[in-house]
Design a protein around this nucleic acid. Structure first.
Lengths: 188, 188
DNA sequence: TAAAGTTTGTACTGTTTGGTACGGTATTGA
DNA sequence: TCAATACCGTACCAAACAGTACAAACTTTA
């Protein structure tokens, strides 16, 4: 196993921050070189496909994180109540109380949506699907769980927008609190 | 009143579509000239401040629309129940069942957020504030109405992301339906 | 230590960027 | 009808853009 000076994996978090800040179209290579400290040579060595290649790697990284820390726990089935709590806690941390943009959500609003359609769709489908499964384990009917899951995922995404717009992360916390409430209430 | 060949107001909708598609940073002047059919000369005649000027005009236009068609009706007080219904209906139409990006929301996720901070903040504050007022007229307590209002606005914004991500506007309709339900239920 | 392979910086390409300058053409009020 | 004003197209600018080429500097293997 060769020891390397830098690894692809090392620069992905910094790459992600650039895309988060400026979106796909708005992110320039000069910003990327500055953020990663890498010259174009290294960048194109790791990502021969250029910007698109970098974005793909970042999307994959985000998806892996959510798969491990959110989606899989939701469907583990051991203790759905705890899994749900865990999801909300992880979201508050990961999205920094709504101050940190969701990269996939941001891509979904740009024209780039088409370029990364499969990755974006997969991320949100998986989230809704696994959350729905968890809610059904908690006693919700299938259609109720489906609606509720969509609603909760949407709320979290929207709460990021609201928090960033008003510079007030209490919005995010309130929305999460409300989501916890409607997720555990018994349907009429 | 001078008759003019073209008016500023005429190009704003087309301008808005470009910003919606590409975001502020991603929107290039060549895309704008193409979309509006206007040369740079005309563009800089109407908007001496360039791209930023154009974006300001578009934000103003959006804000005016919501002020007239959503925010003011919510606080009119005549019939809060109808006003609430009206808001949801207008949103479904305006956002084309979640397929049309909310320009202000999209700006809030970009780095441009800082540039247009005041306009973005005002838009969402007004929305939440007027919705809260309406909910209080419907019998919600002040804190409940505040939380609920944040939650509903966030849900709508997030529902756009979800719908665009999955290319399935049923997500938007389900979220709106759920929002209608939680808005009118009596608190425990 | 020598050869092979990996990583990195620099200089360069042609293109596009936002913005300016300015001459020309409509439309106006007087 | 005749300035004055409002509109519009083209050519132009320096800076920044994404991407390429390639040699120098490292690591590793042998």
């Amino acid at each position: 196993m060769p020891k390397v000076i830098a690894e692809k994996a090392d620069v992905i978090p910094q790459l992600a921050e650039v895309f988060r800040k400026h979106g796909y179209e708005g992110a320039s290579l000069s910003q990327i070189t500055k953020a990663t400290g890498l010259g174009k040579g290294s960048l194109y060595h790791f990502f021969p496909g250029g910007k698109e290649d970098m974005a793909q790697a970042v999307l994959k990284h985000v998806d892996d994180w959510f798969q491990t820390h959110v989606f899989t726990p939701l469907t583990s089935g051991e203790n759905p109540r705890d899994a749900l709590d865990h999801m909300f806690t992880q979201c508050v941390t990961y999205f920094n109380s709504g101050q940190r943009v969701c990269l996939v959500g941001a891509f979904a609003l740009e024209e780039t949506r088409d370029r990364f359609a499969a990755e974006i769709q997969n991320y949100f489908s998986e989230w809704v699907r696994s959350l729905q499964a968890c809610l059904q384990l908690l006693g919700q009917s299938e259609p109720d769980a489906k609606t509720l899951a969509s609603h909760i995922v949407a709320s979290i995404q929207g709460a990021i927008i609201l928090t960033r717009s008003t510079d007030d992360s209490s919005h995010f916390h309130e929305v999460v609190k409300n989501c916890r409430a409607i997720a555990t209430q018994t349907p009429p």
